[in-house]
């Protein structure tokens, strides 16, 4: 697959900023003893602010496990994880919920909007948990929905929106808290090619505005929109390259 990525460069030479993500020797093991399986087997990764990273790999390579750990949705068996300089790996549940709310915007393959709840209410939800006042919440949610091009659909419930529109509501929800990091787990997996193109254009815009974006995908054309491509296999990183097409 390496030949598909035409431009290759060393990552280390580029990096000179404060890392948003700093994972050291992450291990995630399921089960115990001989029957145990290593979903992550010693992954170390550093992602700087403003990067646009794609993580690729076949199913079972551990990329989703890594994503869940990066998003503070799951814990690891051993290793350290610093997000924006804060250590996450030893944090308690109360602080973790704050980190999830303020530092991370998460986008799922299956959208994960709250059912039977309007688009605007879905976008307002993370701000509500942070204690943002109702008026400001509504204003910011309106702006976020405008940015993703759904300013005219704010009162639609998830079932009244197409897959592409639902995913854009999810993007608006992820962005509205102004997180340090936007994480997307197979965001185009349930979308048609038109919606996929629109969504990737949106990610480009978001990254161009300075936000760090990490996308998990197994689709090459999605990965090629990123500036850095990480490949995983059997719970380990096997390659970590800049995408020369995108990085001048």
């Amino acid at each position: 697959m390496a030949e598909a990525v035409e431009a290759v460069d060393s990552v280390d030479s580029v990096v000179d900023k404060l890392p948003v993500i700093d994972v050291r020797d992450a291990v995630k093991r399921y089960g115990v003893g001989d029957a145990s399986i290593f979903a992550l087997n010693g992954v170390s990764l550093s992602i700087e602010a403003g990067e646009y990273v794609a993580i690729m790999g076949p199913s079972g390579s551990g990329k989703s496990t890594l994503m869940n750990i990066l998003g503070a949705l799951d814990n690891m068996t051993s290793g350290e994880y610093f997000l924006d300089g804060i250590e996450i790996s030893s944090m308690d549940e109360i602080h973790l919920s704050i980190v999830r709310g303020r530092k991370i915007g998460f986008i799922f393959q299956s959208f994960n909007l709250i059912p039977r709840t309007t688009a605007i209410a879905n976008v307002e939800l993370p701000m509500a948990y942070q204690g943002v006042k109702a008026k400001e919440r509504r204003a910011r949610a309106m702006v976020a929905l405008d940015v993703v091009g759904l300013g005219d659909r704010i009162n639609h419930e998830p079932t009244e929106l197409s897959g592409g529109q639902q995913q854009r509501v999810a993007v608006a929800r992820a962005l509205v808290t102004r997180p340090a990091l936007l994480l997307a787990d197979e965001p185009t997996g349930a979308l048609d090619s038109k919606s996929t193109g629109d969504l990737l254009d949106l990610f480009d815009q978001i990254n161009a505005a300075g936000r760090t974006v990490v996308v998990i995908t197994h689709e090459l054309d999605v990965a090629h929109r990123a500036k850095r491509i990480i490949r995983m296999r059997d719970g380990k990183i096997v390659s970590d390259e800049l995408n020369k097409q995108r990085v001048a």
Partner: peptide
């Protein structure tokens, strides 16, 4: 339960 998961993923504290 899934909805609870979504709420937690976007930063809902357990207490809320």
């Amino acid at each position: 339960t899934r909805e609870i998961g979504i709420r937690k993923a976007i930063g809902a504290p357990k207490g809320a």
